[in-house]
């Protein structure tokens, strides 16, 4: 069980999280909602090992692999879509398998070989999502993953993510409760302090 216990954190004088406990159900999606500034992304950074809370602890993550879709795409601009995804996969992963999944997420063949800096915002977002979903991970963090996708593309990508992530422990950060319901997630709402 991945769990956060007694998390308290401030940014300067601003208290963001105060004595927060959170359990992530193994093999299920937990959706984290709440207004801007309520500490959702901060919490995900603790789980990803990128920040340490002022007090409290993260349990159950020792030696476990993480993957994430960040709020920003965070892609290597000079690499192709396939190159960005392969970077986080074992070397033995064939490009053709990665390309097939990128196609399923809505990228066309000509877009697969281009440097991602030449792709549209929506296509770049798809690459970031595919990278996280294909990575071998024990915890997947999706921080507002479908932002920037058009309505049709969003449905297509959400369906692909739901299929691929079935049975994976996932933290979905979202403002959209419909997204949380689509993933059959347990919803946890943070309040702004």
């Amino acid at each position: 069980m991945i769990a956060l216990r007694g998390i308290r954190h401030r940014f300067g004088a601003q208290l963001v999280l105060d004595d927060l406990d959170l359990d992530l159900d193994e093999g299920r999606v937990t959706a984290l909602t709440g207004p801007n500034g309520s500490g959702k992304t901060t919490l995900s950074r603790f789980l990803l090992g990128l920040s340490v809370p002022d007090t409290g602890e993260v349990r159950g993550m020792d030696g476990r692999r993480r993957a994430a879709v960040f709020q920003e795409n965070r892609l290597c601009e000079q690499l192709s879509a396939v190159g960005n995804v392969r970077l986080v996969l074992p070397r033995s992963t064939p490009s053709s398998a990665v390309a097939a999944d990128l196609r399923r997420a809505g990228l066309d063949d000509p877009e697969l070989a281009k440097p991602v800096r030449d792709l549209s915002g929506g296509q770049r977002r798809r690459v970031a999502i595919v990278r996280a979903v294909l990575a071998e991970a024990d915890l997947l963090v999706l921080d507002e993953p479908f932002t920037g996708l058009d309505a049709l593309g969003k449905v297509q990508v959400m369906a692909w993510v739901r299929d691929r992530c079935a049975g994976q422990t996932t933290l979905l950060i979202t403002h959209d409760l419909a997204e949380a319901r689509w993933f059959g997630a347990r919803v946890v709402t943070l309040a702004r302090l």
């Binding site: 990128l50 993957a67 960040f70 290597c76 190159g83 986080v88």
Partner: peptide
């Protein structure tokens, strides 16, 4: 820094980070 965090989260080996993140 954002890309370095990505490399940390996904545990990209140093030799693979070098041409993708560091050298550019």
């Amino acid at each position: 820094r954002a890309l370095l965090e990505v490399a940390d989260v996904f545990q990209v080996p140093r030799l693979r980070r070098l041409p993708a993140v560091d050298l550019p």
